[in-house]
């Protein structure tokens, strides 16, 4: 029996009398300590899937089981990291994490809790920003707070809903490494939702594509048999990596190509030469950066 299991899960939405079947027959089993990545298209129902696992939504049919028991509403045993950080802007980093820890570990003494919080702040390399507010932090740092908060709750399962999508490429790479470092210390069960295949390969043990909706189902599984730790420059030379990457990408291209829309109507392009219109703005000079009107 798997640690986290989804059996024949279906979910639909009703909007203005029209039923949209978002997810159909989702079957997923995640073993304890496994890191699984689900790669999907935008709008295919990835967020719905995460919300079914963390208990914010209930499936129409099928079961969502954690350690054999059905999931009943949200709870700290499933820690979630969202795309838009969701940290409270009027609290400092320390206070944000403290809020979660106080909820989950009320039995610990104040000192123990303090140590617990600081340990996780240290884990995400934010010790220098312990007492700063979110407005003073960059996007990457805010996401680290989110990670620390989720981990500090000692969840059984870590759910990540496109956590790094909103960050620039450099920060994204750095945070990928950090999350994997942290994960390898505790080896928690983790589920990552992403739209970047490379991110999935770097971080996960298994990659499962989510086909585009409606009626989205999970595609075939791809095992990532590349030893950890995985370094992005070195992995490029690994033949297993190349083969796997191509396999996943080609599968996604095939599945995604059914989405292209075109009628087959042909229009003719008149053969004309373009003309440079009008005069440029008054007062525009090479040196000025801004154009002032007058």
């Amino acid at each position: 029996m798997a640690f986290l299991e989804l059996k024949n899960v279906c979910k639909s939405y009703i909007n203005k009398g029209i039923t949209t079947q978002v997810l159909t027959d989702i079957n997923l089993g995640i073993e304890e300590g496994e890191f699984v990545a689900i790669v999907g298209f935008t709008g295919s129902g990835k967020t719905t899937l995460i919300n079914l696992i963390n208990g914010l939504l209930e499936p129409d049919s099928g079961e969502v089981l954690l350690k054999g028991k059905p999931v009943d509403g949200p709870g700290p045993d499933r820690g979630v990291i969202f795309q838009n950080y969701s940290i409270l802007p009027w609290l400092t980093v320390y206070q944000n994490i403290k809020l979660a820890v106080d909820e989950v570990l009320p039995d610990l003494s104040k000192k123990e809790r303090d140590a617990h919080i600081r340990r996780y702040i240290e884990m995400v390399n934010l010790t220098h920003a312990t007492d700063k507010r979110p407005a003073e932090l960059s996007g990457g740092m805010r996401q680290r707070v989110s990670v620390a908060r989720a981990l500090a709750m000692s969840p059984q399962v870590l759910l990540m809903d496109e956590p790094l999508s909103a960050l620039d490429a450099l920060t994204r790479g750095t945070l990928q490494k950090e999350i994997i470092n942290i994960w390898s210390k505790d080896q928690k069960t983790a589920l990552l939702i992403t739209n970047d295949v490379d991110e999935g390969i770097i971080m996960a043990d298994r990659i499962i594509p989510l086909k585009p909706g409606p009626n989205a189902t999970l595609g075939p599984e791809f095992s990532v048999n590349i030893p950890r730790p995985r370094n992005i420059t070195e992995i490029n030379k690994n033949s297993t990596y190349k083969k796997l990457r191509n396999e996943v990408l080609e599968y996604l291209i095939e599945v995604g190509s059914t989405r292209v829309q075109n009628d087959g109507v042909e229009y003719l392009l008149p053969d004309l030469k373009p003309v440079m219109p009008g005069r440029i703005w008054p007062g525009k000079r090479k040196k000025s950066e801004k154009v002032k009107y007058f």
Partner: peptide
């Protein structure tokens, strides 16, 4: 600004 799969399209 697009997800990597729309980017491919």
């Amino acid at each position: 600004m697009l997800d990597s799969l729309t980017r491919g399209e």
